[in-house]
Structures are given as structure tokens and as C-alpha cells.
Design a protein around this nucleic acid. Structure first.
Lengths: 343, 343
DNA sequence: CACGATCATGTGAGCGTTCAACCACTTTGA
DNA sequence: TCAAAGTGGTTGAACGCTCACATGATCGTG
């Protein structure tokens, strides 16, 4: 304890007071310099800056947060980050947040239980986030988060529909409709569907778009096969499709399953697109190199991230006018879709 | 200003003092309860807990950090999060960190300049991380980060070689060697290589393993084609391979490029594996559904994450004994590799 | 039955910021 | 000439927690 002074000097990083002493001003003046207050003379400002670099000072974020109660951080809860869509959304929000001057803390929820979600939100709250972006397309998850009534703004960014508030998304119904109409336009009488899991809003919406396209033409939709986003499920759906000779076109709710469908068709010896046309959804970077190159629906994720962050910033600024911001996807036509073989 | 009291009471979230008052104890006792100190009687503990839930109290992390100077957070700087390997590593470290009781803050570096990297580290330092995990396989990036001489431990987790300190990784050389030897064992006289970009340590190491395998047999390696991890680059390499009739086997440094190679071979009409065998690296979830199903090298990412975090925790505990922790990959044989066609 | 242990709790300082209030000194304008 | 307004600074009190230490019970022990 006699070496108290030494110990104290040992490794503590320099504080504002140290800088102030060095520059011969008060700590408050240092604070002003750091916060770009105009109320400080040019030469003192320079003296302070010099002291800062000499001491290698860096401002303590915790103390600042404690005093201001504003962290400059927004939280994001995601699920299924191994899937293409969710991971792209996470990346885009993070990037857009950075551009807007926010740190984005992403928490991936492993199991989509109520508890798991609550934990994720709790951990974000512990990190003092100023707002939370929820990117979980699971239906129950959405309603749960809404029911949490958090003291900070919550913005949705996946599985968004017209009824939502404070939500940014890409119009899944429209995308699916475009894909399906593309196939119908080519002359197919109807289009089969390989869907995603029914408890994902996005799966439901893509199914909806597929249905709408048929309705708009007054024709009955083709058969519907349940998938779970995985290539495996696409593969087994593909085998069943290959068996039924009357299916000439399939809309597959994501590219990974479409890959499985393609494989099944190859194995059975049905050619794509000559015998069966296939359209996917996502436009993963590999899609152009599937065999054959996959026609699919592309989503503008960077744009989505920006819109989500924009919404968040507005909510943070006190704007409470509910808003839904749906961006449009677009169809990328490649080689896996073509006109049906004439009978 | 006259309504100062009201304003103060307005929205401030409850503090330890509030809980203490409510439970009829001192703030310190509340702190003890929160930190599971044994020095508190069971009934007071319950009273405090009750007060906590009644008030909806949650402990202020900033204040805690300010007092303890320990954030319970480790930072991670990643690059190329859109690629399979890097994103898996990021996810696995995050998950392993959580299990070890740490928050993991991931920062994705977009451009791998010195400045970009410095910024990323700066931002992590601002977040008061206790250690930094660097998952950037770019050669220059590695040396740069090492030269930074940060006041906190730095652990490497990608592009790791035998000469490193405090590093966890998967043995890339071994993986590539296994892939190449598999092909040689099948009877191919030599194996061609589609490599990754030369400034990625991992690309260099996979090339090294490919070379070693040939050397061990005393045969000359096949031709080498430069790629950049993208399916496009694999595709154009594939076209060149298809043209040279004497190449019967290719080792492709990642699965995405392997997909491109497969496509090129299909287009030219060379069958896989009858005419050309192809082996990839990564074992992406889709690999089993490529056409044909891709033989490839799988890496145990969750294990890698655990080891990296373990190393970090040990470094945090003051251990400075340098350590390199290389896990073994394993070969997954599927349909894209087979014996050469007899001449 | 007084007397150190041990247990359970309270007290006050300190972490490094920002914020509100205040001060001294200059300029302005009627 | 003097009040008002602006400029460039200082001072001290928060913010909500933990740490070191003090204190008051309770208890076994010689």
C-alpha cells in the first residue's frame, strides 16, 4: 500500500484531467475541444490536440455513456445467419449503420424460442443500444418482440408486410409474383411451388405471390411442395416433381432449394429448361454458375439496410409516424427458364 | 425549470439506489446480491430480488464498466464476411465467446487498407474490448495488426501458420494435401490447381499442401491456374482446363470456384468424374448438391471458434506462453472424384 | 462472561465523462 | 457612461456502479 502512487501510475490510461493538466487548461475545455464546441480559441484548441496525441489519450466511452446516456449504438437481432438472405441483411444493416454514425451490435439467435429471443433483447439492452432492429422472419418471433413493449424504438427488417409499423423490407409477394408471371408468360399452363417453412413470413409471402400470379390469369396453380430452405429439401421436392410428367415449370422459394431441385432433375434425366423450367429466389452469387444458370429474383440488400437504418434514425429523432418501406426486387433471367416443350 | 422534480422523475430508469431503498437495504447489498456474493442472508437476498423485479431494474453496464474497467467483451475484426469461410469463422467465434461469457463485437473491414484496419481496431478499442481476435487472412493485414502493439491481447484465427503466436486455425496445408493425395491415390498422374489470390495466407497454404503431395510422391504437379475465390474465376479456369486434354484431376482451392469449374466442364462436354475429377475446399452446405456432388475438404468451424476463444481467455488470464493451435480438416468424398479413364 | 472470529450489512470515495452554473473580460450600442 | 450581450474559460456536481473499509450483530471459546 506504500506504493500506492506507483501502482496508480502503472497502467491507467490517461484521462481528460491528464490532458488538461498537460495543456494547461481545465478538463472542461478538453471536453469542448473533443466535442468541437466553437467556444474555444484556436491556439488553445491546438495545445489541447497536441497534449492528446502526446499522451495517446482516447476518450472513455463508458464514462461518456454514463454521463450522456446515449451510446451511439443500435442493436440487431438476427436468426439463421447461415442463410443467404439473413446474413446479407445483417451485413447491410451493419454497414448502413456505420455510415450513419452508429455502431451496430448483431446478436444471432440460435433457437427461436421465446426465451432465446428475450435473452437476445436483454443482452442488447445491457449493451445500452438506443434502438433495436429485428431481422427475424419467424412469425411468432415477430409478435413476441412487438409484445415486449421496449423502452426504445424497434424496427422490423425482415418478413415485413403492409400491416406493419416501422418496418423496412423487400416486397416478397411482388418478387414471387414476378417469378411466376415470367414462367406463365413463357407459356406454361401453371407453375408448381417448392415453398419455405410455413412459419416464416417470407415463405408465406412468396407463396402468396405465386398464388396471386395464377389468380390474375384465372388459372389454377400447380402442385405445392413443402421445403425448409435447405438444398436437401429441394432435392426431395425435385424428385417428386420429376415424377409428375405434367409439371413443366417450378418456382422454388430460394436458390439453395433450387439447386437441390436441379440436381434431382438431372439425376432423373429431365432436362432444364427444355422439359422443366426452374426459377429461384435470392440470386446468390453462385446462381449464375448453377447448371444451368439459374433464373432467380434478386433483392437489393444494401438499399434495404439503408432504409432500415434511416427508419431507425428517424424513430430515434422522435418520429412516431408509422411507416412501411417496401423496396422492389427484380427478376434476373438466365438459362433455367424457357418455353414449355410443345406437346 | 420549475418542474425539475417532475422532469427528473420522468423517465430515468431505476438505479441500484432505488432498488436498495425499496428493499430497505444499502446499495452495496444490492450490488452483493447482483454479484452473487455469499455474504448476504437468504431473506434479504429475496427481498432485493423482489424489489428488482418490481422496479424492472437492470444494472447499468456503463457504470459497471467505468468502475471495474472490465467490459466482458472481446472484439473481432473480419474481412470478406460474404465468403463462406470467413463468415463461418465469425459466427463460430461469436458463439464460442458467448458460451464463455463474453460478448463478441464483430467489425467487418470493407477495404483492407492499413487505414481501414486501423479504424476497425480503433472502433473496437472504443468499445472497450478486452481482447481482439483478428480473422483476416490477408498477408499484409496480419503483419500490420501485429505491428500495432496494442495494450490488449491479440489472437489470430485465420491464415495461421506454424510460426505464429497466439493463434488458432485449421491446418490448410494438411487439408490441401489430403485432397491432392486422394486424387493421386485414385491413380491420377498429377493434379492441377485452381488457386486463391496469392496475398491470402490461406491460398498460399493450400497451394503449399498441393505441392507437398506431389513432392512426397516424387511427381511433378499439374498446371496451376490463378483464381480469386469467385465462381467466375473458377469458371474461366475450368474452361482452360477443359481445353488441355492431359489434365485428369483438379484441386480447386474453394467450393465456389469448384462450382465454376464444374460448369465450365459441363459446357465443354467433359464429364466429371469420368474425364476430369474435381475436388474442392470448404464443404459448403450446397456442395453435396452440386452436379455431381462435390468431393471437398471440411473444416470444423465450431471447434475452431472454441479454440480461439479458449486461447483468448487464457491470454486474458495473463498467460503469455505463445501457442499455435491447429485443428485438422477432413476429406469428404462424394461423386466428383474418381479414377482416371484408362487410356 | 468478556473476547476475538465470523457474518451480514453500511459508508464513502472514486471511475472519467458531461452538464449547468458561474466568472472575468471584451465588445457593442443607446 | 453604463447595461447588455458575447467570448473563452473554470468549477463542482451529477451519472450508477464497485471497491476498500468500517461497523454492529452473533457466536463459540477459554
Amino acid at each position: 500500500m506504500t506504493e500506492n502512487g506507483q501502482r496508480e501510475a502503472r497502467r491507467r490510461s490517461p484521462s481528460m484531467a491528464d490532458v488538461a493538466a498537460r495543456a494547461g487548461v481545465s478538463h472542461q475545455t478538453v471536453s469542448r475541444v473533443l466535442n468541437n464546441s466553437p467556444l474555444v480559441r484556436e491556439d488553445t484548441r491546438e495545445r489541447v490536440h497536441a497534449a492528446i496525441v502526446e499522451l495517446g489519450y482516447r476518450r472513455n466511452a463508458a464514462a461518456r455513456l454514463l454521463a450522456t446516456n446515449r451510446s451511439g449504438r443500435i442493436g440487431m437481432v438476427s436468426a439463421h445467419l447461415a442463410l443467404y438472405g439473413p446474413s446479407m441483411i445483417a451485413a447491410s444493416v451493419q454497414e448502413a449503420g456505420r455510415e450513419a454514425g452508429y455502431d451496430v451490435a448483431v446478436i444471432g439467435v440460435l433457437e427461436l424460442s421465446e426465451q432465446g429471443l428475450r435473452d437476445a433483447v436483454d443482452r442488447l439492452l445491457d449493451q445500452a443500444v438506443e434502438a433495436i432492429v429485428v431481422a427475424v422472419a419467424h412469425r411468432d418471433a415477430l409478435s413476441l418482440v412487438r409484445s415486449l413493449s421496449l423502452p426504445i424504438p424497434v424496427v422490423l427488417v425482415q418478413g415485413v408486410g403492409p400491416g406493419d409499423t416501422m418496418a423496412a423490407g423487400i416486397d416478397q409477394v411482388l418478387g414471387a409474383r414476378m417469378a411466376t408471371e415470367h414462367l406463365l408468360d413463357l407459356g406454361h399452363r401453371s407453375v408448381a411451388l417448392v415453398s419455405g417453412p410455413a412459419d416464416w413470413t417470407e415463405a408465406v409471402q412468396r407463396r402468396e405471390g405465386w398464388q396471386q400470379a395464377h389468380e390474375a390469369r384465372g388459372v389454377l396453380p400447380g402442385p405445392e411442395l413443402a421445403g425448409d430452405w435447405s438444398p436437401e429439401s429441394g432435392y426431395s421436392a425435385g424428385l417428386r416433381i420429376a415424377r409428375s410428367a405434367d409439371v413443366s415449370a417450378v418456382f422454388v422459394a430460394n436458390d439453395a432449394m433450387a439447386l437441390g431441385v436441379l440436381k434431382a432433375l438431372h439425376e432423373v434425366g429431365r432436362s432444364v429448361p427444355a422439359e422443366v423450367s426452374v426459377v429461384g429466389f435470392d440470386d446468390v452469387p453462385e446462381a449464375a454458375f448453377y447448371w444451368p444458370a439459374l433464373t432467380t429474383v434478386a433483392q437489393n440488400f444494401p438499399e434495404l439496410g439503408r432504409r432500415a437504418v434511416d427508419l431507425t434514425v428517424r424513430a430515434l429523432a422522435g418520429e412516431d409516424r408509422p411507416a412501411v418501406d417496401l423496396a422492389q426486387p427484380h427478376l434476373v433471367v438466365r438459362e433455367s427458364s424457357g418455353p414449355p416443350r410443345l406437346p
